[in-house]
Design a protein around this nucleic acid. Structure first.
Length: 425
RNA sequence: GGAGAGGUGGCCGAGUGGUCGAAGGCGCAGCACUGGAAAUGCUGUAUAGGGGCAACUCUAUCGAGGGUUCGAAUCCCUCCCUCUCCGCCA
């Protein structure tokens, strides 16, 4: 959520920065509501002050010996009643405006950082780094072909259990998934991340706090009988881990690594990535999350991205880092790096992690502050995948494929998986 | 799911209709004392919003939302949560 004071003091900046995202917003209506709301608040609180004084007067009169039904007291009571009624009217109006203002503010995305490159779409993202030698060659298979031959998962039977875009991992496939989760969590633990296993059903306040609601309700699965949703990413429960808290400055930064399943409707992606592990309604992910001091967030963004890259490097998977342009960034992000892993079978780079700094956007929605000296301020939040497990498995399969049909696994994984090769079962 | 108890400031804990944002303690900060520290003493110490250059001031907040009243932490209603016992259960 954007700062209301910014809306008041510098609305041009908001329009201009949202313009960099490719949005055209007219803030005059919003400003008008904000102004009305503030005027109303002033009127109401002045009236309440008078009401409070009246109440006290009655108390003092009675304590001083006046009869509760004396004319003097009666007159004050009537005055109190009159004020109460007026306040009620103003209050209702004020609440209406407040709700409207909040609703509209919640629908506005974060302002892009000044450092974010300007652009309209994916095509304008900027490659900033490349690591590893992308393996090239004819006859390299895609991960779903390899997995099929190795018997790593069931696709058709998964439709029976749930529906399309769900997968059932079997045998070595299930084992490799588990190995990857443990491997990643262990790696992050050595870098000061606290391991977290949060609820994966989250309430709507949590989704609002991290930015998925109100605008992206159609992207998540909702439980019909409760105010609970299946979380689309661990970013949601992790943000709300400290919702409505004031954190002592010495505790910052708080760094968390959480493994969770993630659930997404993937609406609007019919026909894309229909085979294999790339795009599923349910997938596993290890998420990295920082709560940090505003002055440290740029540095933290680099570090968090490096921590995600460390997983790819330990797994010997070639990747590149893109900086997303203003037009391609997510709703809550001020600045984003995407990590794309090389898939030799597909012959392309594929997103495997998205590392964003959200500034105080989520902190304001979620009321997460820190205390430094006398006052409290909003802190900054950052998140990034470290990494998406299914896509990591796909990359391992494609990058490790051998002429004899087996898959060579990276050395770092052997202690977790127990073998250095996948062979047909 | 049934029965009971309870939710007050960073924490503990008083407070059952009047000037209570709230005693007391702990913690924390400043000052004094000290060679330095401990102990001690004094002072200060919630959050959000509005007004003011500022000192300051107004409003709201005692789980949440309604209600009664001139006036509610305190009385009434609804909901949420926590704890204990019973039941059920991985």
């Amino acid at each position: 959520m954007l700062d209301q004071r910014l809306l008041r003091d510098n609305p041009e900046l908001i329009s201009q920065q949202l313009g960099r995202r490719g949005m055209e917003v007219d803030l005059t209506k919003l400003q008008l509501i904000a102004k009305q709301e503030r005027d109303l608040e002033e009127q109401r609180s002045n009236l309440q002050a008078e009401g409070n004084r009246t109440g006290k007067e009655v108390g003092m009169l009675i304590k001083g010996g006046a009869a509760p039904d004396s004319d003097e007291v009666k007159a004050l009571r009537e005055k109190g009643n009159r004020i109460k009624q007026q306040v009620a009217v103003l209050e209702e109006e004020e609440k209406g405006l407040e709700a409207k203002l909040r609703e509209q503010l919640l629908a506005l995305p974060n302002l892009p950082s000044a450092d974010a490159p300007e652009g309209k779409s994916e095509a304008d993202n900027v490659e900033v780094k490349r690591w590893g030698e992308p393996r090239q060659g004819k006859d390299l298979e895609e991960h779903w072909q390899l997995a099929d031959r190795l018997g790593l998962f069931e696709t058709e039977r998964s439709v029976r259990i749930a529906q399309s875009r769900f997968i059932t991992l079997m045998g070595d496939g299930a084992r490799l998934e588990r190995a990857l989760i443990s491997f990643m969590l262990d790696l992050h633990s050595t870098k000061g991340y606290t391991e977290v296993m949060p609820p994966i059903l989250v309430n709507s306040a949590s989704l609002t706090g991290s930015g998925q609601l109100p605008k992206f309700a159609e992207e998540s699965f909702r439980c019909a009988d409760d105010d609970l949703w299946l979380t689309p990413t661990a970013e949601v429960p992790l943000t709300s881990l400290h919702r409505d808290e004031v954190i002592a400055v010495e505790q910052l930064p708080l760094k968390y690594a959480a493994y969770t399943p993630c659930f997404r409707r993937e609406a609007g992606s019919y026909g894309r990535d229909t085979r294999g592990l790339i795009r599923l309604h349910q997938f596993n992910k290890v998420e990295l999350y920082w709560f940090c001091h505003p002055e440290k967030s740029a540095e933290a963004h680099e570090q968090l991205t490096l921590d995600a890259e460390a997983v790819l490097e330990a797994l010997e998977l070639p990747y590149r880092r893109l900086e997303l342009c203003t037009g391609d960034m997510g709703f809550s992000a001020a600045r984003t790096y995407d990590l794309e892993v090389w898939l030799p079978g597909a012959g392309s780079y594929r997103e495997i992690s998205s590392c964003s700094t959200c500034g105080d956007f989520q902190a304001r929605r979620s009321a997460i502050r820190f205390k430094e000296g006398k006052g409290t301020q909003l802190l900054h939040t950052l998140n990034g995948s470290g990494l998406a497990i299914g896509r990591t498995m796909a990359a391992l399969l494609e990058n490790g494929q051998q002429p004899d049909g087996s898959i060579q696994l990276p050395a770092a994984l052997v202690p977790y998986f127990g073998r250095e090769r996948l062979t047909p079962q």
